[in-house]
Design a protein around this nucleic acid. Structure first.
Lengths: 207, 207
DNA sequence: TAATTTTTATATTGATCGCTATGAAAAACA
DNA sequence: TGTTTTTCATAGCGATCAATATAAAAATTA
């Protein structure tokens, strides 16, 4: 008899991988990579270290999986806004607004997991810093690609520096992330987002 | 005989306190609070742990002293721009430009020590996170105070939301800090700064 | 020179770090 | 039932964490 769609051979795992990954995401989001210990993770998951290592390999790989999960859930609004909104400007506007909503949510605001995860780090964790950096730069590239399309479609002037404009809005989002964690009032964050839109090429900034 | 202006009684310290503090500043700036160990610090200073502890008390107090030193040296351009420039707009412009210069300096850009020091942290280091947060918020307040003065002097309309405008430019500076660390090209950073100025109330953002 | 004071270096402290060797437990196979 | 396979919990690995107890070293003071 073949084993198709049935249980595998050994002892079934007590660890719900999906649930455990969400727990890891929450801890890493709040405390960052270096601020979250394996003991913290296993305690929150309700398992012992060997179970964690069998399921995820290492703390570093678990962190990367948590980042992937973040990008596919809480952090997915950026990609969705870029894909769904009819204009680049509306996409950027939605990104700014949803950033405020997601980052300042809950009793202890968490900001952006990519922006606040591990900007600085011990030399031995360079890989983690580089990985996060890559993900942040990828976000800028995604915004830039949408702006380039807007140039082609005539929404933006051909002379537009799309790379710098994308980096500018990414910078505002990163700043929103830090200030959300600092407890800056949500209304202020919303106004920051609105102010950033005044820098949109050709926009008349209000008096 | 009294001891006035002479050497104190005991064995003279081999540790140059000022020099050691600058060394600590550099390490903390690069690797953050959690990413810098006492062993790293003593090794770079060329002393043994007891010397560090008699001179600075604890790692946490040394970090705070390093932050003070940063604010009085590398990070002093903000306060100076706010005090020296004739208009609020020129002050903000200078802050943005000098941010780019300072944050992207050197072979391994360090960003802002306040913005990248310890956004996330282990629960047992909450004091450090809170201290950094307080310093970042103080910067926003300083900018706001200058904008309030600009309102009084007629440079800005009375309806201006000075708190949000100050928070906006602080957010851009914080984003610049992150992207400088990520290795974003210096010219792009400069254009981000210029773009942010287009959001200045009443400014016409270029086509 | 002898006593006092302060800093120094050596060596360690207990705690925690990420991680794993070991063997029992729990399932599917034969 | 007995074998095989996989995960489980117990316990502990060496390394590193921030911080110190101890006592020798180096200065001033008497």
């Amino acid at each position: 008899m073949k084993n198709i769609g049935k249980r595998p051979r050994g002892r079934p795992r007590a660890l719900d991988r999906d649930e455990a990954l969400e727990t890891a995401l929450q801890l890493f989001w709040r405390h960052g990579y270096e601020g979250t210990s394996v003991a913290d993770l296993t305690a929150a998951m309700g398992v012992t270290p060997p179970s964690l290592y069998t399921a995820f390999g290492s703390k570093e790989r678990l962190y990367q999986e948590a980042l992937d999960r973040y990008g596919a859930s809480y952090g997915s609004f950026t990609a969705r806004a870029l894909a769904e909104e009819p204009t680049a400007r509306q996409a950027v506007e939605r990104i700014l607004q949803e950033s405020v909503a997601v980052y300042s949510e809950g009793p202890a605001p968490r900001g952006c997991m990519l922006a606040s995860g591990a900007v600085t780090c011990a030399p031995e964790h360079t890989m983690v810093v580089a990985d996060l950096s890559k993900r942040r730069l990828a976000t800028i590239s995604a915004i830039k690609a949408r702006l380039d399309r807007a140039v082609i479609e005539g929404e933006l002037a051909p002379s537009t520096d799309t790379e710098a404009l994308a980096a500018f809005y990414a910078a505002v989002v990163q700043g929103l992330s830090i200030q959300a964690r600092d407890g800056v009032d949500r209304d202020v964050l919303k106004t920051i987002a609105a102010t950033a839109l005044n820098a949109w090429p050709g926009a008349a900034s209000g008096r």
